[in-house]
């Protein structure tokens, strides 16, 4: 049964408990950082930070400043670009949907990092391999929840069967709309074949740094191959003409 995390941004208070719990469970070190002009820290997901809370400041309809928070990490896409391009098979799928990463197999080619549409997968300079959120398979397969979900104090993060999570997300959006809390919308239901992280957003995906239409990296392979084959044929025919043409002066 496919599992998923629900990230309900309307319940997130930006405490970063998920961020710290992730570091604790996976033994990830702290990152030396500088003040970025925001309480958000560190600046981006990295090999040492697999989950982080993004702090977004926007102006509401009334012109007043509004905080938006989102707990961001690997979305465990069904059409996962990183998994599709990985040449060694280090990235692989768990039966319940997580995109896991086998450190014993990764050889540090970094193709996954370039392919990920969300900027999640990162090369770890220290180990020479890729790193990202693996959705705590050791916990989940022992019947526990991912560390970030267990820690979340407000219920902004919940975990369960994807069907149930999706239904819960829809109920939440309906409830928010009913209370006049500027709508809300779901992200992740159908993006990239369906993500294993479902978001309830209170604003546009772009506000949260999520692409409206994320692109599956290898979707272009067919058209690129076609243009390459065409160029090969033109080159072959051109060479045939060049070799067969009766030469001018100086021809041997």
């Amino acid at each position: 049964m496919a599992k998923a995390i629900l990230v309900d941004t309307s319940k997130c208070i930006g405490c970063r408990g998920c961020q710290v719990a992730c570091k604790q469970w996976h033994g990830l070190p702290a990152e030396p950082t500088r003040f970025q002009g925001s309480y958000e820290n560190p600046p981006d997901l990295s090999a040492k930070t697999w989950r982080k809370v993004r702090f977004i400041e926007t102006a509401g309809e009334d012109g007043r400043l509004r905080w938006r928070f989102i707990s961001d990490a690997c979305k465990h896409c069904t059409d996962a670009s990183c998994l599709a391009v990985c040449p060694t098979g280090a990235l692989y799928r768990r039966p319940w949907g997580a995109v896991d990463l086998n450190q014993e197999v990764c050889n540090g080619c970094r193709y996954c990092a370039a392919a990920c549409p969300y900027g999640v997968v990162t090369f770890n300079e220290a180990t020479g391999r890729a790193d990202k959120c693996i959705l705590c398979p050791d916990r989940v397969e022992a019947g526990l929840q991912p560390a970030c979900v267990t820690t979340c104090p407000t219920g902004a993060l919940t975990f369960g069967d994807r069907e149930a999570i999706l239904a819960r997300a829809k109920r939440r959006v309906a409830a928010l709309t009913g209370r006049g809390k500027n709508g809300g919308r779901i992200y992740g239901e159908s993006e990239l074949g369906g993500l294993h992280t479902i978001y309830v957003l209170q604003d546009t995906p772009a506000t949260y740094g999520l692409p409206e239409k994320p692109r599956f990296a290898t979707a272009s392979v067919f058209s690129s191959s076609l243009t390459s084959i065409l160029a090969s044929v033109v080159m072959g025919v051109g060479a045939l003409v060049a070799f067969r043409q009766r030469g001018g002066r100086g021809e041997e």
Binding site: Y111, A114, A115, S220, V221, L226
Partner: peptide, 17 residues
């Protein structure tokens, strides 16, 4: 390079030819 999500490369079908 086309099969990535990087600027210039991502989705471009003309680098191969």
């Amino acid at each position: 390079l086309g099969a990535t999500n990087r600027p210039v490369w991502g989705g471009n079908a003309w680098i191969g030819p």
